[in-house]
């Protein structure tokens, strides 16, 4: 079971984070954000923070899977989980590019 978590964990983290950032962007562009007294600049800041947090978590996950404490005893699972963790890191960076490059609420 733990091995299944090692394999599925990193990409599940990507999916959760990706959906959460998308949700945050939706919130920022909704009337609720303005009602809370926040402006678009605060929104961009929040998005940037969230994106950095995601990338940090992914790096941490990748490093943790390399340690003896969290690595699997099966060589195949170890390679597979490290590979998928790298995929998750790349996916996070790739799919969060818009945070830095596009306009938020148009």
């Amino acid at each position: 079971m733990t091995d299944i978590l090692r394999i599925s964990g990193p990409l599940t983290l990507w999916l959760t984070a990706f959906s959460a950032v998308y949700g945050l962007q939706g919130l920022i562009c909704s009337p609720r954000w303005a009602e809370a007294g926040l402006d678009l600049a605060a929104g961009r800041m929040a998005l940037a923070l969230a994106a950095s947090l995601v990338l940090g978590l992914q790096v941490a996950f990748l490093l943790a899977l390399r340690t003896t404490r969290f690595a699997s005893c099966s060589g195949f699972v170890r390679t597979l989980s490290l590979g998928l963790s790298t995929v998750a890191l790349v996916a996070s960076a790739w799919t969060l590019i818009p945070v830095a490059t596009t306009s938020a609420c148009l």
């Binding site: 950032v21 998308y22 962007q25 562009c29 818009p98 945070v99 596009t102 306009s103 938020a104 148009l106």
Partner: peptide
Amino acid sequence: PHMGLAFFS
């Protein structure tokens, strides 16, 4: 909004 579309693109 375009950023939302860009994520999914």
